[in-house]
Protein backbone atom coordinates (compact mmCIF):
# COMPACT_ATOMS: atom_id res chain seq x y z
CA UNK A 1 0.00 0.00 0.00
CA UNK A 2 1.77 3.12 -1.25
CA UNK A 3 0.71 6.50 0.14
CA UNK A 4 1.16 8.09 -3.30
CA UNK A 5 -1.28 5.58 -4.77
CA UNK A 6 -3.84 5.45 -1.96
CA UNK A 7 -6.32 7.88 -3.49
CA UNK A 8 -5.28 7.60 -7.17
CA UNK A 9 -5.46 10.39 -9.73
CA UNK A 10 -3.31 11.91 -12.46
CA UNK A 11 -2.39 15.27 -14.01
CA UNK A 12 -0.72 16.40 -17.24
CA UNK A 13 0.36 19.79 -18.63
CA UNK A 14 1.45 20.72 -22.17
CA UNK A 15 2.92 23.67 -24.03
CA UNK A 16 1.38 25.00 -27.24
CA UNK A 17 1.94 28.02 -29.46
CA UNK A 18 1.29 30.98 -27.17
CA UNK A 19 -0.86 28.77 -24.96
CA UNK A 20 -0.64 26.04 -22.33
CA UNK A 21 -3.03 23.31 -21.23
CA UNK A 22 -3.36 21.46 -17.95
CA UNK A 23 -5.69 18.54 -17.23
CA UNK A 24 -6.61 16.11 -14.48
CA UNK A 25 -8.92 13.17 -13.86
CA UNK A 26 -11.76 13.31 -11.33
CA UNK A 27 -11.44 10.11 -9.29
CA UNK A 28 -11.14 10.09 -5.52
CA UNK A 29 -10.59 6.57 -4.27
CA UNK A 30 -9.60 4.62 -1.23
CA UNK A 31 -7.35 1.94 -2.76
CA UNK A 32 -9.66 0.00 -5.13
CA UNK A 33 -12.88 1.61 -3.82
CA UNK A 34 -14.06 4.75 -5.61
CA UNK A 35 -15.41 7.36 -3.17
CA UNK A 36 -16.24 10.21 -5.54
CA UNK A 37 -15.93 11.16 -9.21
CA UNK A 38 -16.01 14.94 -8.82
CA UNK A 39 -12.59 15.40 -7.26
CA UNK A 40 -10.73 18.09 -9.20
CA UNK A 41 -6.97 18.24 -8.75
CA UNK A 42 -6.24 21.37 -10.81
CA UNK A 43 -6.56 24.81 -9.20
CA UNK A 44 -5.96 28.41 -10.19
CA UNK A 45 -3.02 30.24 -8.61
CA UNK A 46 -3.64 33.43 -10.60
CA UNK A 47 -5.77 34.31 -13.61
CA UNK A 48 -3.24 32.71 -15.96
CA UNK A 49 -1.32 30.27 -13.76
CA UNK A 50 -2.84 26.90 -12.86
CA UNK A 51 -1.47 23.93 -10.98
CA UNK A 52 -2.41 20.30 -10.38
CA UNK A 53 -1.68 18.35 -7.19
CA UNK A 54 -2.17 14.60 -7.66
CA UNK A 55 -1.14 12.29 -4.83
CA UNK A 56 -2.53 11.91 -1.30
CA UNK A 57 -5.93 13.65 -1.42
CA UNK A 58 -5.56 15.07 2.11
CA UNK A 59 -2.30 16.77 1.12
CA UNK A 60 -3.84 17.99 -2.14
CA UNK A 61 -6.26 20.08 -0.06
CA UNK A 62 -3.70 21.08 2.59
CA UNK A 63 -1.14 22.26 0.02
CA UNK A 64 -3.79 23.97 -2.11
CA UNK A 65 -4.88 26.00 0.94
CA UNK A 66 -1.29 26.75 1.94
CA UNK A 67 -0.42 27.91 -1.59
CA UNK A 68 -3.51 30.11 -1.72
CA UNK A 69 -2.33 31.85 1.45
CA UNK A 70 1.22 32.30 0.12
CA UNK A 71 0.09 33.57 -3.29
CA UNK A 72 -2.17 36.11 -1.55
CA UNK A 73 0.66 37.23 0.76
CA UNK A 74 2.92 37.62 -2.29
CA UNK A 75 0.27 39.72 -4.04
CA UNK A 76 -0.07 41.99 -0.99
CA UNK A 77 3.67 42.43 -0.37
CA UNK A 78 4.69 42.87 -4.03
CA UNK A 79 1.50 44.58 -5.21
CA UNK A 80 1.47 42.45 -8.38
CA UNK A 81 0.37 38.96 -9.33
CA UNK A 82 2.90 36.17 -9.15
CA UNK A 83 4.57 34.95 -12.36
CA UNK A 84 4.34 31.22 -13.20
CA UNK A 85 8.15 30.86 -12.93
CA UNK A 86 8.13 32.45 -9.47
CA UNK A 87 5.11 30.39 -8.47
CA UNK A 88 6.95 27.20 -9.44
CA UNK A 89 9.77 28.14 -7.08
CA UNK A 90 7.24 29.05 -4.37
CA UNK A 91 5.68 25.58 -4.65
CA UNK A 92 9.12 23.99 -4.68
CA UNK A 93 10.27 25.72 -1.48
CA UNK A 94 6.91 25.06 0.18
CA UNK A 95 7.48 21.33 -0.42
CA UNK A 96 11.16 21.42 0.54
CA UNK A 97 10.22 22.93 3.93
CA UNK A 98 8.89 19.46 4.70
CA UNK A 99 12.00 17.67 3.35
CA UNK A 100 11.98 14.94 6.01
CA UNK A 101 8.23 14.53 6.39
CA UNK A 102 6.92 15.41 2.96
CA UNK A 103 3.50 16.22 1.57
CA UNK A 104 2.71 13.25 -0.65
CA UNK A 105 1.91 15.13 -3.84
CA UNK A 106 3.76 15.67 -7.12
CA UNK A 107 2.67 19.04 -8.56
CA UNK A 108 2.44 20.12 -12.19
CA UNK A 109 2.22 23.81 -13.09
CA UNK A 110 1.09 25.55 -16.27
CA UNK A 111 0.81 29.24 -16.99
CA UNK A 112 1.51 32.16 -19.27
CA UNK A 113 3.96 34.79 -18.02
CA UNK A 114 3.93 38.58 -18.35
CA UNK A 115 5.76 38.33 -21.70
CA UNK A 116 2.91 36.10 -22.95
CA UNK A 117 5.27 33.10 -23.09
CA UNK A 118 3.93 29.67 -22.17
CA UNK A 119 5.46 27.99 -19.12
CA UNK A 120 5.13 24.53 -17.59
CA UNK A 121 6.91 22.78 -14.75
CA UNK A 122 6.64 19.72 -12.56
CA UNK A 123 8.33 18.56 -9.41
CA UNK A 124 8.60 15.58 -7.11
CA UNK A 125 7.15 15.44 -3.60
CA UNK A 126 10.11 17.28 -2.03
CA UNK A 127 10.16 20.06 -4.63
CA UNK A 128 12.82 19.01 -7.15
CA UNK A 129 11.86 21.13 -10.17
CA UNK A 130 11.62 19.96 -13.77
CA UNK A 131 11.22 22.75 -16.34
CA UNK A 132 10.21 20.83 -19.43
CA UNK A 133 9.78 22.51 -22.81
CA UNK A 134 7.13 20.08 -24.07
CA UNK A 135 4.94 18.36 -21.47
CA UNK A 136 4.94 17.17 -17.87
CA UNK A 137 2.97 14.35 -16.24
CA UNK A 138 2.24 13.19 -12.71
CA UNK A 139 0.11 10.74 -10.75
CA UNK A 140 -0.72 7.03 -10.80
CA UNK A 141 -1.06 6.99 -14.62
CA UNK A 142 2.24 8.85 -15.20
CA UNK A 143 3.88 6.03 -17.19
CA UNK A 144 0.89 5.75 -19.50
CA UNK A 145 0.76 9.56 -19.80
CA UNK A 146 4.44 9.58 -20.84
CA UNK A 147 3.75 7.00 -23.55
CA UNK A 148 0.71 8.87 -24.88
CA UNK A 149 2.21 12.37 -24.68
CA UNK A 150 5.50 11.30 -26.23
CA UNK A 151 3.71 9.99 -29.31
CA UNK A 152 0.90 12.58 -29.65
CA UNK A 153 2.53 15.88 -28.70
CA UNK A 154 4.22 18.09 -31.30
CA UNK A 155 5.65 21.62 -31.12
CA UNK A 156 3.63 24.82 -31.76
CA UNK A 157 0.10 23.43 -31.43
CA UNK A 158 -2.67 26.01 -31.61
CA UNK A 159 -5.07 26.18 -28.63
CA UNK A 160 -7.77 23.95 -30.17
CA UNK A 161 -5.23 21.33 -31.34
CA UNK A 162 -3.51 21.45 -27.96
CA UNK A 163 -6.86 20.79 -26.30
CA UNK A 164 -7.41 17.72 -28.49
CA UNK A 165 -3.88 16.47 -27.86
CA UNK A 166 -3.99 16.80 -24.08
CA UNK A 167 -7.51 15.32 -23.94
CA UNK A 168 -6.57 12.23 -25.96
CA UNK A 169 -3.37 11.88 -23.94
CA UNK A 170 -5.23 11.97 -20.63
CA UNK A 171 -8.25 9.87 -21.59
CA UNK A 172 -6.33 7.01 -23.18
CA UNK A 173 -3.80 6.98 -20.34
CA UNK A 174 -6.34 6.91 -17.51
CA UNK A 175 -8.38 4.22 -19.29
CA UNK A 176 -5.42 1.87 -18.77
CA UNK A 177 -5.02 2.90 -15.10
CA UNK A 178 -7.32 1.40 -12.49
CA UNK A 179 -6.62 4.23 -10.02
CA UNK A 180 -7.35 7.14 -12.37
CA UNK A 181 -10.23 8.18 -14.57
CA UNK A 182 -13.97 8.54 -13.84
CA UNK A 183 -14.18 11.84 -15.70
CA UNK A 184 -11.65 14.51 -16.60
CA UNK A 185 -11.21 18.29 -16.72
CA UNK A 186 -9.06 20.24 -19.19
CA UNK A 187 -7.97 23.87 -18.85
CA UNK A 188 -6.57 25.71 -21.87
CA UNK A 189 -4.83 28.98 -20.99
CA UNK A 190 -4.29 31.56 -23.73
CA UNK A 191 -2.96 35.07 -23.27
CA UNK A 192 -6.41 36.67 -23.03
CA UNK A 193 -8.67 33.68 -22.45
CA UNK A 194 -8.98 30.66 -20.17
CA UNK A 195 -11.27 27.73 -21.11
CA UNK A 196 -12.37 24.95 -18.79
CA UNK A 197 -13.91 21.84 -20.33
CA UNK A 198 -15.28 18.67 -18.75
CA UNK A 199 -14.57 15.55 -20.81
CA UNK A 200 -16.99 12.68 -21.23
CA UNK A 201 -14.98 9.67 -20.15
CA UNK A 202 -15.37 5.97 -19.46
CA UNK A 203 -16.87 5.52 -16.00
CA UNK A 204 -15.27 2.17 -15.11
Amino acid sequence: MSIMELNGGSCVAMVGKGCVAIACDLRLGNQALTIACNHEKVFAATERTYYGLPGLASDTITVRDKLRQRVNLYAMKEERTIEPETFAHLVSSTLYERRFGPYFIEPVIAGINVKDEPFIAAMDLIGCLNFAKDFVVSGTASEKLFGMAESLWEPDLEAEDLFETISQTLLNAVDRDAYSGWGAVVWVIEKDKVTKRWLKARMD
Partner: peptide, 25 residues
Amino acid sequence: YWIDYLGTLGVVPYAAHGYGAYFAL
Protein backbone atom coordinates in the same frame (compact mmCIF):
# COMPACT_ATOMS: atom_id res chain seq x y z
CA TYR B 1 -18.95 15.56 3.16
CA TRP B 2 -16.97 12.32 3.33
CA ILE B 3 -13.96 12.80 5.61
CA ASP B 4 -11.45 10.17 6.71
CA TYR B 5 -8.76 10.12 9.42
CA LEU B 6 -6.12 11.29 6.91
CA GLY B 7 -8.01 14.52 6.36
CA THR B 8 -9.35 13.51 2.95
CA LEU B 9 -12.47 15.49 2.11
CA GLY B 10 -14.90 14.49 -0.60
CA VAL B 11 -18.04 16.41 -1.51
CA VAL B 12 -20.54 13.65 -2.30
CA PRO B 13 -24.24 13.01 -2.97
CA TYR B 14 -24.10 9.79 -0.93
CA ALA B 15 -21.37 8.10 1.08
CA ALA B 16 -20.47 5.29 3.44
CA HIS B 17 -17.71 4.48 5.93
CA GLY B 18 -16.52 1.11 7.12
CA TYR B 19 -17.34 -2.29 5.62
CA GLY B 20 -20.78 -0.92 4.74
CA ALA B 21 -19.16 0.99 1.87
CA TYR B 22 -18.32 -2.27 0.05
CA PHE B 23 -21.94 -3.41 0.23
CA ALA B 24 -24.02 -0.23 -0.01
CA LEU B 25 -22.20 2.06 -2.48
